[in-house]
Design a binder for these strands. Sequence first.
DNA 1: ATGGTCGCGCAGCGA
Length: 259
Amino acid sequence: MRIATWNVNSLRARLARVEEWISYAQPDILCLQETKVAETAFPSLAFAALGYESVAWGQGQWNGVAILSRVGVTDVVVGFGDQSTDRGEARLLWATCGGVRVASVYVPNGRMVGSEHFEAKLRWLDGLRRQLVGSCDPASPLVIAGDFNVAPDDRDVWDATKLHGATHVSEPERLALRELQDWGLVDAFRLHHEEARLYSWWDYRAGDFHQHRGLRIDLVLVTSSLADVSSYTLIDRFARKGKLPSDHAPVLVDFEYQP
DNA sequence: ATGGTCGCGCAGCGA
């Protein structure tokens, strides 16, 4: 089973590239973020033509998450699953695909460390942790994939000195990520790559991509039953090249797991 | 040379 995640920075602007990527990467499950499209305008037919069912949550314009699957989609939960009429920003979507509980996440950016947006980011991560504690089993196959907007450690940062204490690398958000992982999640990419300077996001400006100035903030976190059968992982930098790319590259992980 | 680009949607904000 191949599970992938990609912050596409507008699905409407990126649809052709996403279709192309699916066709050659052949993920079984693909989590998308920053789709910036409402459910009513979600291009389900385009993905159905490639053999994928899809579920989406979006308000248009900003945020937006989706899960595509060619191994089934059931038990969809939108957001934190509470009963409030205002479901909040479209940043979290759950589904069960081929026996794996899957979450597509778009963690709030946080803007400036110490700002109200940053505090909201920490609360959001804690809300996700509490949802895991309350309604998920760490012994079951589960994956949380998406744009976490946190670089787990300094290997994931192009210049840790320059960015020290800044958003994406500050200790409070790294701690929030570790507390999430302490529930029973492993960073699948790190099972196969210990080395530094492997990134998933590069700022559009200043030629950052070509200068290798990036961050690894797109993560695939998995429970031990999946980690134990994880065989391969790749950040597809090829998909960040060329005309009008997303500013994120897709990340994929393979598992010796039969749906 | 201390900025630099996108996407949204039509000014300027967010990332």
